[in-house]
């Protein structure tokens, strides 16, 4: 079985199939960002993204994730170590105190902003509802996610701009072909 963890393909040995995936990530792959806190899926400290959807992995087994695309907190920053704008916003807003909930919070916020890049504060509150934090009172986490939203808006616009010229060239090409056909006719 194969897993795609942080854009790397990983072959899972048969012996690890029945392991919980949080243990597999932490112990076998040394990705210790996802924390195993409550062990029953109540707190959200183990959240990772599976196909861009937040998932609590402390109650799930490795075999449930065959062929899925997994993103952990280690895959958020650029390969050269530059922090993702959302991580930077967490630092700038002081949204980290003990740091135990932070990986889950960043990934939940990332998944939410990918879907909704113009959020209101109430929507952010609802989005991180399932993640528990004892230190920050959530206020600065919400500030941070709000602060990072413009980056996702720019990315969204960039994607739209990138896909729009293709359409234009496509229409131009089709016109050209019709013209060519006309000339030929």
């Amino acid at each position: 079985m194969k897993l795609f963890v942080n854009n790397k393909e990983i072959e899972v040995p048969a012996s690890a199939m029945e392991k919980r995936i949080v243990e597999f990530l932490r112990e076998d792959l040394d990705l210790t960002g996802a924390k195993n806190a409550c062990d029953i899926g109540a707190c959200g400290a183990c959240t990772i993204l599976v196909n861009d959807e937040p998932s609590r992995i402390c109650i799930k087994l490795v075999k449930d994730f065959g062929g899925q695309r997994i993103l952990t907190i280690e895959g958020m920053a650029a390969p050269d170590g530059t922090l993702h704008p959302l991580q930077q916003a967490f630092l700038d807003c002081g949204a980290i105190q003990c740091g135990y909930c932070t990986p889950g919070m960043v990934l939940t916020g990332h998944a939410f902003l990918l879907k909704n890049s113009h959020p209101t504060r109430d929507q952010i509150r609802q989005a991180i509802f399932k993640n528990l934090c004892r230190c920050t009172g959530y206020q600065q986490i919400i500030d941070a996610i709000e602060k990072a939203a413009p980056h996702y808006q720019r990315e969204e616009r960039g994607l739209q701009a990138a896909s729009a010229p293709e359409k234009q060239t496509a229409t131009k090409n089709s016109k050209a072909t019709t013209l060519a056909k006309g000339e030929a006719g």
Partner: peptide, 17 residues
């Protein structure tokens, strides 16, 4: 014994501070 029975505040329980 755990966070499902000991209920600490979630984001929706708290107001803007």
């Amino acid at each position: 014994l755990n966070l499902n029975t000991y209920r600490i505040p979630r984001s929706m329980d708290l107001p803007e501070m």
